[in-house]
């Protein structure tokens, strides 16, 4: 009864990014969509952080609002037992975490999130159009990261340079976030 004539299984599905074709920003705050990345939501107890850090090749930060980067991977502290680990391309994060051999939870969220890169002298002001956190370098230095709100949606914010941020957002909220960032970027340039 199966239509064996068809051979769709060998066709690899193409990928459609949530913010494909989005452009925006201003002279003060440039907006770009980040290339696809692999991401896991990693949960573990304090005693297993060392083993997981070793297995992932990046030290899981234990200090609030901090991140660390190594070997093309960035680990963001989101909570006392929670990290968002982002890898460029396909980094095999799930397997790496599994290789640690310690108790943990890793969930693949590569497609749940997408990211917008905000850069330029007005980057912080653009984000402050909707984010209530203090984004001065004193309060939010390079490498600082936090889950927070942006207008009516939740984001994870990472400062990648003095004038550059990565905004991680769930995919269905990403066009809202992009739209609000556009308005924020515009206002930051005035």
């Amino acid at each position: 009864m199966v239509d064996s004539g068809a051979n769709f299984g060998s066709d690899i599905a193409a990928r459609t990014l949530p913010l494909a074709g989005f452009h925006g920003g201003s002279s003060a705050a440039r907006l770009e969509t980040a290339p696809p990345a692999e991401r896991i939501s990693l949960r573990a107890r304090a005693e297993d952080v060392g083993a997981l850090s070793g297995a992932l090749g990046v030290a899981l930060p234990v200090k609030p609002k901090t991140s660390s980067s190594a070997n093309g991977r960035t680990a963001l502290w989101l909570g006392p037992d929670e990290w968002l680990v982002i890898a460029e391309g396909n980094g095999g994060l799930m397997q790496a975490a599994k290789n640690s051999g310690v108790l943990h939870s890793a969930a693949d969220v590569s497609h749940r999130n997408t990211a917008i890169l905000v850069s330029g002298p007005g980057a912080a002001a653009a984000i402050n159009a909707g984010c209530p956190q203090d984004l001065s370098l004193k309060a939010f230095p390079v490498g600082a990261c936090s889950r927070t709100v942006f207008g009516k949606v939740e984001i994870v914010l990472l400062r990648t340079a003095e004038d550059a941020f990565r905004v991680e957002v769930w995919r269905s909220f990403s066009d809202y976030a992009f739209g609000l960032l556009c308005e924020g970027a515009q206002d930051a340039s005035l």
Partner: peptide
């Protein structure tokens, strides 16, 4: 045990 929202994954 840990919980992760994967609605949008």
């Amino acid at each position: 045990v840990w919980l992760t929202s994967t609605t949008e994954q």
